[in-house]
Write a protein that binds this DNA or RNA. Structure first.
Lengths: 190, 190
DNA sequence: GTCTATAACGTGATAGAC
DNA sequence: GTCTATCACGTTATAGAC
């Protein structure tokens, strides 16, 4: 019984890894089954269709993001530290075999993924943008962040910068990510 | 004779469109052949392998970008106008069925594309980054742009922001692109 | 829950006629 | 240059035994 949840979770781990590594159309049930050491049909037992699998990956990511955001609260971090933690989160992708973030991968493949996945993707992105906007709004009010214009625009720019940064690394060098983070912070703190 | 070049160019147009629309693994020779009204095998006549096709798309994009940059010179545009033109270039993708930019699509699919395409992708990105860095360096020297930090970092941030922006549109709304451009300019002009 | 076996279809690619 | 026909293989997915 714990075994079921265990395998299911393992499949999600592996599939999400492939998704960030190769995109939604860049991996198959066979890849997952080989990676896990079971058979193709066994993967289908846990996730009947690839759509089910894709939706589950994104839903889990949404929950994980919200838990993460919550954990920052309970650790009592300040605005500046929270922003650092977000950047660190993306840096993890780069450090882990130059993977890209889930949102970026799903948006690039957007027109090829089923409707249910598109819907979850919007939800995921909306959740992240909402959090970031809140952080920037609060941080600016308290004088931690200093940027002109609308908070919403700044949040969008940072989200775009973050997801573009992890992708750019693949065509340049890992240090590009650090460059972009450095500059992003420079512009928001002065 | 002109017909050959014509069909070949049409294939490139259609394939590049698919690539920006659905990613490298999201379209097939069949899609192209149907779209062009010829047969699968005929497409293979012009581009024997999908790798050949992919490489040709990127090479053409590199040439096109350099012609575009050159055209800005002959039009005698200033630094500020050149930056506007770049943003406009990306906005075109958004306006055209919310497509993403070639660099972003290729980077997301990077680990699934053949070596030759990876090489061309690096070349393409390098070309764009070099141009942008030159623009920012010159513009800052002349007092048009005002940003702290390294020119290279700023160029990387803007490239990441641009490619992230066209992608984010898909999961949010087209106006996100305008928001991001507005904020990007705000930060580089003050 | 996992297996074997297989269906139904899509993919990149090639041979050879016209 | 384009066609028909076909190959070899990968894909998602299902039926049914263990």
């Amino acid at each position: 019984m714990t075994d079921q949840r265990h395998t299911k979770e393992q499949i999600l781990d592996i599939a999400e890894n492939f998704l960030r590594d190769r995109g939604y159309n860049g991996f198959s049930y066979k890849d997952i089954s080989i990676s896990l050491g079971i058979r193709n049909a066994s993967v289908h037992y846990h996730f009947p269709t690839k759509t089910d699998l894709g939706v589950a990956i994104i839903r889990r990511a949404i929950g994980r993001f919200e838990s993460w955001a919550q954990s920052l609260e309970s650790r009592g971090l300040g605005h500046s530290e929270k922003l650092d933690e977000l950047c660190l989160r993306f840096k993890t992708f780069v450090d882990h075999e130059q993977q890209v973030c889930l949102g970026g991968a799903l948006q690039t493949d957007f027109k090829t993924i089923p409707d249910e996945m598109q819907k979850e993707t919007r939800e995921f992105v909306s959740s992240m943008l909402g959090w970031l906007e809140g952080l920037l709004k609060d941080g600016r009010k308290q004088g931690v962040f200093k940027f002109p214009g609308k908070t919403r625009d700044q949040a969008l720019l940072m989200a775009a910068g973050l997801q573009g940064a992890v992708q750019l690394v693949r065509a340049t060098t890992p240090s590009s990510f650090d460059s972009i983070m450095r500059q992003m912070k420079l512009l928001v703190y002065r």
